[in-house]
Nucleic acid binder design. Structure first.
Lengths: 213, 213, 213, 213
DNA sequence: AATGAATGAGTTTTCATTCAT
DNA sequence: AATGAATGAAAACTCATTCAT
């Protein structure tokens, strides 16, 4: 064994997935070569095709894994619904928790849609639609009654999701701009900050429910 | 004149920029070939290097142009500040107006950051920082007083920007999910919906200065 | 095995080196294309980059190999020095023998210095300096005593080397001019002719240790 | 006039020739681009083809000019022959004088033989043959009588020429190796050193004729 | 006489993938 | 399971030259 990097204890297949996650997130799928990938993973070039059939297959495996986890997290909330506000907060906490586990995966799953993979595009669309069909019931009925304004899910839904996702996509940029670091303490309150903002806006009334438990 | 496609009235240079905008947005920078680009623009392959030096130079020109326009729009508001709420609404309207002009550019400018263009990354970061240094004063002081909760610009700022940007990045997906179309009528009210959401949240009080309803 | 030309017995790497030696010598490094080279070697185009990294890497490998051999030959003489005249003759014989093995290599190693390979230029300069530092002691001390005129190594050294090298560089031209052929018989006496000329000039006294006549 | 380099007083045609001489000598004909050339000369790109028809035409003009001058110098000596030794010395002085005027030209005329210019190759060969037919009579008859050894023009001729030419081709290298500079003083004695070496060798008898006059 | 935009064939290099071992 | 040599297509880019002005 004379490999030069990476976590050599783990399986080759896992090492490839880890290397791909890192490189695809940093450089993009199209801009990352399989040779570079094999080097980073410390495996032979041919192993990528051996395990995943093709570079495309590797990306597909990555994205499927991400949505698998996403589904688990979301459906768990959908299966035991509570009051509206609590749903929002649980959703924010769960998604933030998931995204923190592997921010690179977020970028890949959200960003990459190779033009020559229509089946992957369809797969993603189907997954998202399926997720939403479970999520919206958590909010839609209740918010219609509570809101003093007409509620447009096509506007509010993406806005809520984006306020979490965007944070992870742009985290390096945001950190540089505000010359700060997002540490564990920040992420304890972050989901509730997001939920508060979504529920009451920047100038809205104080929430009765405490943040960060 | 024996060109074979594209909008032949405009200049070659402009046709290349237009083709690049469309293709980069749809397929990504790395996945788009210069041959494909030249075909789409109806120009000779060499014209890309002739006008822009390299494929990278073309991307840079594209992004610089976008931020140029972005700056103009934002600084125009910053130069004549008004009350907090009005600033938010003007900002939302201006940015939505700009993004509608060329949604493809939004995707490119926000998404593409080729690993081997550190100068471009720095350029973008500098532009954003400069913009923000003009924008935040419009909101920061006033919102601190108005808000009943502690205000965190690092959370609320990106959330506000993302609620607009994300809409344009994900528009095709959102349209498919809700089986609808974003027409002119929608965009008349959209900026104020975004502003309302940011100001008062989904369940917040009705705005007095409602627009479009 | 379905290769179409060249000497198929040898390894691809060697075939590339052989083809490059021939083509670079005949046409020059810059004027020889990698496509042409791959054809001549009977290998796939990509093999050149596979084995040598780049066209430049191929040239470098060629030149390094030449100087490697040159060093061996010269240092072998330097390691067992004899009387001055004998040193000169042994040097001439050794160098002529080396150059005859691969005249094309001589041309390449002496002529090619691509502007964009400063490291190669430095490599060559270092090699030559190293060689000379071993060679000059063979002659310098003794010739100073023997010569009736002041001895200038900067003039005589290059003149001696050039009288051998030039022959191989200009051989095709010389052959055409004198309408003759340089055969084995010629090369048996050639080194001593060169040595005689260097030692005694065209009108100098006959050498006692004449060879080949 | 907003040109950035070169001697702007001279004609465009001359500036192109000067730039080509410098660049071809440094980088080689094949490795020098016409755009680079036009920049160096401070003329428009198209002027090269306008004046010389093609890049090849430019090289041809350069080489023809060199051999024109070479011929003049050599034939001037051939027209007024003297005793053998004097011929040798006059030849050396004349050629060194010529080469010093434009060392770059020497390199180009001696080195460049583009494969796709057979007419130029023939032109050069014809010129050289013509020159030699005038030069050899200066030496051949007389040296045969004087020499104590059999004289081989095919060996001695090139050796004599090379001892001068090589000096100019390798001058930068030689200077670096010996950490010295070839100044005017050096070139006053250089032709006679070369002639001495050719006539009597390194250990031959002292010449009666003084050097450097 | 002079320009510079435009051309198309050419360049070197890199790519994902395959295959014999 | 694993290797690494080999492939052929495609990549980005450069070239000398031409042409309308």
């Amino acid at each position: 064994m004379n490999r030069e990097n990476g976590d050599m204890g783990t399986e080759p297949r896992e090492r490839i997935l880890a290397a791909a996650t890192s490189l695809f997130a940093r450089q993009g799928y199209a801009a990352t070569g399989v040779r570079e990938l094999a080097d980073e993973a410390g495996v032979n070039l041919s192993m990528i095709n051996y395990y995943f059939g093709s570079k495309q297959g590797l990306l597909k495996a990555l994205i499927e894994r991400f949505f698998q986890r996403y589904s688990e997290v979301v459906l768990q909330i959908a299966d035991s619904p509570g009051p509206f506000e609590e749903n929002i907060r649980r959703f924010a906490r769960a998604v933030v928790g998931l995204f923190r586990e592997d921010p690179d995966m977020v970028r890949i799953a959200m960003t990459e849609l190779p033009m020559d993979m229509p089946d992957l595009a369809e797969f993603k669309a189907a997954k998202v639609r399926h997720l939403l069909s479970h999520v919206y019931p958590l909010f839609l009925d209740q918010v219609q009654k509570m809101s003093e304004r007409p509620f447009e899910i096509q506007v509010a839904g993406p806005a809520f999701v984006s306020s979490i996702t965007w944070h992870f996509l742009m985290r390096p940029v945001i950190q540089r701009i505000f010359e700060m670091d997002f540490d564990d303490a920040f992420y304890e309150t972050f989901p509730d900050r997001i939920a508060d903002l979504f529920l009451y806006g920047v100038v809205g009334r104080a929430p009765e429910t405490g943040k960060g438990d």
